[in-house]
């Protein structure tokens, strides 16, 4: 059972950062994953008083505060218009509305969970993580970094000409994905992000221009194979490596076809 000795609702990011330098202290996001741990936390750092639960839109970007909930992502109109509803699709299967009312984007991204739909989704966009000390880091880089004691302030999504499709296979509707896929055409580049392999999501770009001559059944299938070959797949209780590889080919192909309006 998780135990916490002290609780501090911080007044500033600096205060949060300073507290977070101590290894026994922890930032609590939605606390959904943290709660299931058996950690003994000295000080729980709560950033819910820092107004980081907003989605701000400018002409250039979306700035999503770390404490924004998954439910906010799901219901935010402009984000969903921008992503053709892919953001909604990526989070709507996660347990239930109540869960998504607490779970935060900051917590999801910080955790870099293998099963993360959120990470899979945002990797297919031109996304960045704004860290309190570390500055702005591309999400693809952040996803590979080891967890440190810095603090996620915002997730930034640069607005580019975008088309985007999210798909996942789940044994039951509210389960973790067996495999999750997001394919986008972002500023002319085709990107496929594949998560729950079961390792954390990775994005593969169409460097060989497989799709540059148009989307059709053949190129979509080829891109599915291309992406799948670049990634490694493993087994866990939800599926074997073999099945995941198969799913990756199928879902990437389908997402590409859907992207092409087919």
């Amino acid at each position: 059972m998780l135990t916490i000795n002290e609780y501090v609702k911080v007044k500033s990011l600096e205060e949060a950062y300073e507290l977070n330098q101590k290894k026994t202290n922890r930032i609590i996001g939605g606390m959904l994953w943290l709660k299931m741990s058996t950690l003994r936390v000295q000080t729980a750092i709560d950033m819910s008083g820092l107004s980081l639960d907003n989605i701000e839109e400018t002409d250039e970007e979306f700035k999503i505060g770390a404490m924004t909930t998954l439910r906010q992502l799901e219901t935010n109109e402009s984000l969903n218009n921008y992503t053709n509803g892919a953001i909604r699709e990526s989070v709507r299967h996660i347990v239930g509305v109540q869960f998504r009312n607490s779970a935060t984007i900051g917590g999801s991204i910080y955790g870099r969970y293998g099963f993360s739909d959120v990470l899979t989704m945002f990797l297919a966009l031109d996304s960045y993580v704004e860290l309190y000390k570390g500055g702005i880091v591309p999400l693809s880089e952040f996803a590979k970094m080891k967890a440190d004691r810095d603090i996620i302030v915002n997730i930034i999504v640069k607005k580019k000409p975008l088309k985007c499709v999210y798909m996942s296979e789940r044994i039951s509707k509210t389960d973790f994905p067996v495999l999750a896929v997001c394919v986008s055409e972002c500023d002319g580049k085709f990107i496929a992000s594949v998560g729950a392999r079961p390792a954390r999501a990775e994005a593969i770009t169409d460097c060989e221009g497989i799709l540059s001559n148009g989307i059709n059944a053949e190129s979509a299938e080829k891109f599915g194979k291309y992406v799948t070959e670049k990634l490694n797949f493993n087994s866990n209780m939800r599926g074997s490596a073999e099945y995941r590889e198969h799913l990756s080919k199928v879902l990437v192909k389908r997402a590409v076809m859907a992207l092409g309006g087919k």
Binding site: M36, I171, S172, K173, T174, D175, F176, M237
Partner: peptide, 15 residues
């Protein structure tokens, strides 16, 4: 392994 409702999935109403 299936020691919770997270790892032992009961049908939900949309299943």
């Amino acid at each position: 392994y299936n020691n919770s409702f997270m790892q032992y999935k009961l049908p939900a109403r949309n299943d």
